[in-house]
Design a protein around this nucleic acid. Structure first.
Lengths: 196, 196, 196, 196
DNA sequence: CTTTAATCGAGACGGTACGTCGTGTCTTAGA
DNA sequence: TCTAAGACACGACGTACCGTCTCGATTAAAG
């Protein structure tokens, strides 16, 4: 089985290929996290992993694909277990979000996608897809609340998500102030206050 | 008069230096806007402007400083004329913000600062300074409203700013949906609804 | 097989390396001959040969080594066939020497070595080694003559070589007068006249 | 009086010009001696002397002229006082020559001229002129000896000079062996032995 | 003792070359 | 068949000098 086949048919993978992919993507995530996407190059990864530079080129002819793969590899589970209480659900969701924006590789993924998306359509697409995936649980929570009659039927859901997520991202990426629990509470309270 | 002196004492500037600075920074802004900060290199600027590469290095030994100067050069006036009506003031402010996030070099400045700030303290500082400068008018508007009694005395002003600016930035940078007038209205209405 | 190994173990040479060495050294000798050692730079050679500048740096990190290799590459055979007659042997030797000092790259090698030797120990060493190698045949001729009794047993051989070679080099490098056959004859006759 | 005039008419020199020439040429000789002619650049001299780089360019637009001036500036007196004894005169002459080839800037001048002369007609001319000037005293000595009948009337004087000077230069520049008194004696004796 | 003129110092500037680094392609050998 | 190793062409980088230039500041010489 050739390399091309194995990429298209991941079910029957050459273990060498699987190993290479795993090791390289791990190093890529590490580099992305610690130095930014400009540091994610075949050379740097080769130095870290011992995998030959040429081997990396064979798997990812475009640097872009390597970065994209690394980001996609690392898909956290955004699911939350709704407890039926809107305020609690939103607070839990934002708490999880804040935790992931505070440590781990996610913030670097975001800034990379934000920056690249301005000039690269492929990254822009990936960025949007991730945003959608990320907001799925909150959509579920909001729709459940609508069904329960706690929120108006004609709620502009995307705008609501922006109202909930926006302040957190703004503070994390723009003003770089700390993301405290009371800040989360203020957001949730402010959002819910509209519907009383 | 040395280059350093002339920068500190702009009254007695060598016209050659002034010309070089002007031309180079204009090209830098242009490149930043159209291709992103990685394209802002002495070589690219030299090709565009005819200014020699070495001359650019003489003025900005660090690429970082060149980008920083280019961003600082382009400081838009964020002033708004308060009309005394909080809703109208906020709407006008967000309208202006949306206009600048929709065209012109500003979005590129933001994503550059956001990305670089993750790994470069100097950019982080500049980013925060710009954010503060940008929110000055909205602070004034909010404080005036507090003085008029339209907003509570104990309002968490930074959190309020995050609630107003956050959704716009979120939509522009994360979900990349269009920024419509009705979206602005939703934000402003949602914010004010809390205090009724 | 690394570049270093292949240099030490020429039996198993990568043909690409062999080709690069050959082409580059030929161009180096050419440049040395026509423009002097200051013209022997990776850039000039790259322009002439089509070999990339970086490839040349990989083979010869120091310009000095490149020049040294070029000179060593071009080791002429200084052997003469002694005919048993001292006068004829010396005349033939000087004739050969004059021929090589009159055309070909040798004179440029000499002036390069002479000049560099003043400030570079490595060149000084190479210079001396070449001088020794060059005078081997004349040493043999003189020693044969000593064995035959035509020259005194206590002859100061190095001084004798200086007496024979010196005038030729002096005229070639210092006064730059033409090196005629009669000049050679004068030298040889003058030298032999001492021992009659 | 302009700089151009003063160069052509050194009798009435602006003291500033005289000072600049003096200081610069001294530094040039120093550099030439210690690092070779490639180190004789306006920049290096400016660093050593405090004279501005532009001033040096004003005086010597071509680097070649600067080096040439430096060499010409330093014209040692080659005169010897003939004592009437050929052997003693030659020995004294060669002794003086050896002394100058052993210390001081002269050897560097020679190697520079030898090297440059191969590719630069102007240096070749200067080199020949210096060689001629240098051999004047020995010509006088030889002619006196011819007049006294100690040397044949039809002596090939240039060849004789080559026979006397050649070995010394050969040993100094080619084999780099030490120049001892006994070596000088061997040369002189060998030369005189021809005419007994 | 001015005034005029030339030199000088300082350094910006456009260039050219340098030596280094990284990229992507390729060839060869080995597992 | 994939990997390892690395030669290679290419292009950009940041640096160092070069030679030209402009522009005051200083000094010398003539009125």
């Amino acid at each position: 089985m050739t390399l091309e086949e194995s990429i298209k048919n991941p079910a029957s993978e050459d273990p060498r290929i699987a190993h290479t992919r795993k090791v390289v993507l791990a190093a890529a995530i590490d580099l992305l996290k610690s130095e930014g996407h400009e540091a994610v190059t075949p050379l740097r990864i080769a130095e870290r992993t011992g995998i030959a530079r040429t081997t990396i080129y064979r798997h990812w002819p475009e640097r872009r694909d390597l970065i994209a793969d690394a980001i996609e590899e690392h898909k956290p589970d955004w699911g939350i277990e709704s407890c039926g209480d809107l305020s609690a659900d939103l607070t839990m969701y934002l708490g999880k979000m804040v935790a992931r924006l505070t440590s781990g590789p996610l913030p670097q993924f975001f800034v990379t996608l934000i920056e690249r998306a301005e000039h690269d359509e492929e990254f822009a697409d990936m960025h949007c897809r991730m945003a959608e995936h990320r907001s799925q649980p909150i959509v579920a929570v909001l729709e459940a609340a609508i069904a329960r009659g706690e929120l108006p039927k004609d709620l502009d859901v995307p705008a609501a998500i922006a109202a909930i997520n926006g302040p957190v991202f703004y503070r994390r990426l723009i003003t770089r102030e700390p993301l405290t629990d009371s800040f989360i509470a203020t957001i949730v309270d402010g959002f819910l206050a509209r519907f009383n």
